[in-house]
């Protein structure tokens, strides 16, 4: 635990796996339809880019922290899009049910 708190420690391993996970999360969020409108996706992409350049500077701890945050930003973006879609679907169902009730009432 103490090791984690030492900034810039040379013993930090390269967070290759974390970067892979983050890239996956960003791709997944885009695949369900997240775009620049979702603020968390923009954050995820910016942090992922910063993490990648930190990797090149061997600033592994910085890269890991950015990548971890970017992963969750992307996952939140994905969850927001999916929730919004389900809300749209609910609204559409309610519309159709109202139309049906109206027609039934008119008969």
């Amino acid at each position: 635990m103490l090791a984690l708190s030492l900034t810039g420690c040379a013993s930090d391993p390269a967070p290759t796996e974390q970067l892979r996970l983050t890239e996956q999360a960003v791709t997944q969020a885009k695949a369900v339809g997240a775009d620049e409108q979702i603020v968390e996706l923009a954050m995820a992409e910016a942090k992922l880019q910063q993490a990648q350049s930190a990797m090149q500077r061997d600033a592994f701890k910085e890269a890991r922290i950015l990548a971890e945050q970017a992963e969750l930003d992307a996952r939140l973006a994905e969850a927001r899009v999916l929730t919004q879609k389900s809300q749209d679907q609910l609204n559409e169902l309610n519309n159709r049910i109202n139309r049906l009730r109206k027609q039934l009432g008119a008969l």
Partner: peptide, 13 residues
């Protein structure tokens, strides 16, 4: 904070 927000969204979903 993010995990809490994701949990909230997934629950709403």
């Amino acid at each position: 904070q993010r995990y809490s927000e994701i949990a909230g969204q997934n629950s709403a979903l």
